[in-house]
């Protein structure tokens, strides 16, 4: 009788352990992606000021903006669309902030995106990947704010 009870406890502990352990492994491997859409922007800039500040001191810019969510407003100077991956290039062709839209956002907001055209203003929010000599300041996973 006593032995049976011990076995029962052991069994319970093993099962609980398996559930907790398995759950942890499952969570780690299926960890959700960072949710840029719901993150409050760390900085709000005009495209012109963002380019200026970043280009004047790239090292400092990397420290300040790298991997941060930034909200940026500017004039659309170029729209690139390659196999339905859409980017808005803001400010100036030579001094640009290049914003690649989030792929799910593109899928669900086609009519909204089509409202924006060259020469118009746009406000976007996205993750800052850094500064490139050709693309300028690069934001990816962007969402249109307005």
């Amino acid at each position: 009788m006593k032995m049976k009870k011990i076995y029962k406890y052991i069994l319970i502990i093993v099962v609980l352990g398996a559930i907790i352990g398995g759950g942890t492994v499952y969570y780690v491997f299926n960890k959700p992606h960072r949710n840029i859409k719901d993150e409050t922007p760390a900085y709000t800039y005009t495209a012109k000021d963002l380019y200026k500040e970043y280009s004047e001191d790239e090292e400092a810019g990397n420290m300040k903006f790298g991997d941060k969510v930034i909200q940026v407003t500017g004039k659309i100077v170029e729209i690139t669309n390659e196999n339905n991956d859409i980017s808005f290039v803001l400010n100036d062709e030579m001094e640009s902030v290049n914003c690649a839209l989030d792929s799910m956002f593109i899928k669900n907001n086609k009519p909204l995106i089509e409202n924006y055209d060259l020469g118009g203003d746009i406000t976007l929010k996205g993750k800052c990947d850094g500064f490139d000599m050709i693309m300028g300041v690069v934001l990816t996973q962007c969402f249109i704010v307005k």
Partner: peptide
Amino acid sequence: LVRSFRFEEAL
């Protein structure tokens, strides 16, 4: 930019 890489799994 290295940060522009996207992967299926967040991990």
